[in-house]
Design a protein around this nucleic acid. Structure first.
Lengths: 336, 336
DNA sequence: TTGTAAGCGTTATCAC
DNA sequence: GTGATAACGCTTACAA
C-alpha cells in the first residue's frame, strides 16, 4: 500500500505537503502540487478511508435501513426503485451508501450503536417494523433521518401525494358515470393505506356522496391474493356491486379484476377498476389497468435531497415534515 | 464520544487492558473484564470503526456493484431478491454491505480504487456493463469477487441451472404432445440467455428433434414488450406456429401469451407457453403461467457463501467456477 | 510556501 | 495480568 509518506520520500518533501497537495489546498505552490500529483499517480496512490475518517471525524456515508423480517423488502419494485434513485443522487454528492446492520463481527449492536460505530452521516429508513424498540432509539438520537412511506411518525417523510392521486382516481370515475365507488384499502398498518382511505372518504364527502362502510374493505396486504380475497368480502357485503372500485395498489387491483371475472363481471363494462402504483405490468394486462402512477425516482431523489440538506444543516430538521411527490393518473382500459 | 481512554480512566487501568477486555482476550483477569465491561456499558461506549479498521487493516465490509446506467437494476425483483438474501447471509457472518461507488467526495475513482480506498474484503457483482474498462481492472486485481448471472467471464459465478430448467421445460412440453417447440431467447448479451438457448438446442438434438432456426427468436430484452415483439417475428417467420413456445423469462412469456391471444390463438389449446423465473404474478395471470422457478434466495445465499470462503481462503479462487442452483418446474395452466 | 508534530481511537508488541 | 508505547495513514495547527 502506498502512503503519503512514500510519496513524500520520493518527492523529497514533508508528508503534510503531500496531504495538502492531494487535498487541493492552496498552501502549496502550483509547481509542487503538480509534482506531487504526478508522483502519486505514478505510484498508484489511493487514500485510506479509515485513516481519513479517523482524522476528520467525517464518514461521508449514509445508512439504509430495512427490515428483512417483513415479507416486503428489496425485491419489491417500489423500494428497489426508490433506493436506486436515492443511491444515484447521494453518490453524486460524494456519499456512499451502506446497509445498516445489527452486528459487527460477532457482536450484536442496536441500529443506533451501529450508526455511531460507523459514524454514519444520515439514515434512510425504507421499510421497518414500527414496533421495533431499536428503531425508536435511533429516531430519538438526533441522527439525520428520512423515511419513505414507512408509517413512522416523527420522522421526515417523503411519500406520494396520496390525496391528489385519490382525487384524480375518484374524479375520473365519477366523470365516467360512477355514482357508487368502493375502496379496497391497503393494510392499515401502512401509512400510505391510511392516507388513501382518508382521502377516499373526504373526497366523497366533498362531492356529497355518502360514505358507506360496506363499500370499504381492508386488504391484508398489498398483493394480488389479498386483493382477490378483499373482493370476495366486498361481494359478500353487498347485494349489488358498485360501478367502480378504487384499489390501493395495482397488485390488489389485478386481484380484484381476476376475482370480478371469475364472478361473471366484465371490466370495465360492469365494474371499473383503478389501481395505484403503475407497475410495469399494468399496461400489459387484459384489460390494461387504469392507475395512479407513483414516481419512484422522484421519491428517492427527494428523500436524498432532503436528507443531505438535514446533514448540512441547511434545513432545520422538522420531524413532522412530509414531502408529497406528485402522482399521475394513467387512463387505460379498466375504466369506462 | 466515549473512548477506551475514558473507560480506562474511570476504571483506573490502562487503555490496553480495556481493549483486551473489550475484545474478550484471555490476557485479562475475569474480574477486571467484568468490571471494564460494566463501565463500558454504563458510559455507553461504542467502538470506532475507522480506528479499528486502521489498526487491524481489516474492514469487514463487502461491496456490491451494479451499473445504474443499464435499465436493469435494483427495481428488478430478481436482483433485489438476490441482494437481500446475500445481505442477510453475509451480515450473519459479521460483514456489512456497501454499494461500490465511483467517487469519494468530489474526486472520481475507479471501482478498484474505491475498493482499495475502503479496504473492501470482497465484491458482489450484480449487473454490469460488460464492456466497462473499469470492471476489467477490478476483476484482474485479485480482490475476491463473485457474480450472479452477469455474463462476465473469468469471475466465479452463481447462476440458476439453466440446462436443468430448460430440460424440465422441454421434457414436459414433449410429454404433453408438443413435437415442435419454439424458443424466444433472452438478449444474447446475457449469459443466462445464451445458456438457455444452448440448452434448448442440445436437448432437442438429444431427443432427435431437428433444431430449426425459424423457431428461434431473440428478444431484445427480458421484458413483456420484447416478448410480444419477438412473437410477431416468430409468426412472420412461420406459416404455422409450433405447438409450444419456451420463453426465456416470465415477462417474455406473458408478452407472448398476450400476442398469441391478439392473433387469435388460444393458450394452451393451440399453443402451450412456458416461462422462466416464477415471478409473483405468474400464478395469477390468465391462464396462469407454467414456468421454471428460479431460487433467488438460494442464489444470493450461495454467492455469499462462496465469496466468504474466497475471502477466508478456504476456497482456492477459481475464476472459472460456476455454481448452478437448482430450479423447479411449476406447472400451471399455460401448458396442456 | 514548507516542515514539524500532535492527534484521531484502536490494536498489538513487549516489558514488567 | 497489566501497562507503556509504537503503529495504523491521514489531517491540521503551528512553527519555521
Amino acid at each position: 500500500m502506498v502512503t503519503i509518506y512514500d510519496i513524500a520520500k520520493k518527492v523529497g518533501c514533508a508528508s503534510s505537503t503531500v496531504s495538502k497537495a492531494l487535498n487541493n489546498s492552496k498552501e502549496v505552490s502550483a509547481k509542487r502540487k503538480l509534482e506531487i500529483l504526478a508522483v502519486a499517480k505514478e505510484m498508484g496512490y489511493v487514500p485510506n478511508s479509515s485513516a481519513r475518517n479517523l482524522a476528520t471525524k467525517n464518514s461521508w456515508s449514509i445508512g439504509v435501513l430495512f427490515c428483512e423480517d417483513l415479507n416486503i423488502g428489496l425485491e419489491h419494485h417500489f423500494f428497489g426503485g426508490v433506493l436506486q434513485a436515492f443511491k444515484t443522487y447521494v453518490e453524486y454528492f460524494g456519499y456512499e451508501v451502506t446497509f445498516v446492520s445489527k452486528k459487527v463481527g460477532a457482536q450484536a449492536l442496536t441500529y443506533l450503536e451501529w450508526c455511531k460505530y460507523k459514524n454514519i452521516d444520515g439514515v434512510l429508513i425504507l421499510t421497518v417494523d414500527v414496533e421495533d424498540e431499536n428503531l425508536k432509539e435511533l429516531i430519538e438520537s438526533g441522527i439525520p433521518i428520512v423515511t419513505v412511506d414507512s408509517g413512522l411518525i416523527n420522522v421526515p417523510t417523503v411519500i406520494s401525494d396520496n390525496y391528489q392521486g385519490t382525487r384524480m382516481a375518484l374524479d375520473y370515475l365519477m366523470l365516467t358515470g360512477a355514482d357508487h365507488i368502493a375502496h379496497i384499502s391497503g393494510p392499515l398498518r401502512s401509512f400510505a393505506a391510511v392516507e388513501r382511505l382518508d382521502a377516499y372518504k373526504s373526497i366523497l364527502k366533498k362531492s356529497n356522496i355518502e360514505v358507506k362502510e360496506n363499500l370499504i374493505v381492508e386488504a391484508n396486504n398489498y398483493d394480488f391474493n389479498s386483493g382477490k380475497r378483499a373482493l370476495e368480502q366486498l361481494i359478500s357485503k353487498n347485494e349489488k356491486l358498485p360501478e367502480a372500485i378504487y384499489a390501493a395498489s395495482d397488485d390488489i387491483a389485478l386481484g380484484v379484476i381476476i376475482g370480478l371475472k371469475e364472478n361473471g363481471y366484465r371490466v370495465p363494462e360492469d365494474v371499473s377498476v383503478v389501481g395505484f402504483d403503475n407497475i410495469e405490468l399494468a399496461r400489459y394486462t387484459s384489460p390494461s389497468l387504469t392507475t395512479v402512477a407513483q414516481n419512484k425516482v422522484g421519491i428517492g431523489t427527494e428523500a436524498a435531497k432532503h436528507l443531505i440538506s438535514i446533514i448540512n444543516k441547511e434545513t432545520s430538521t422538522d420531524p413532522e415534515m412530509i414531502k408529497r411527490v406528485p402522482v399521475e393518473l394513467i387512463v387505460r382500459e379498466s375504466t369506462k
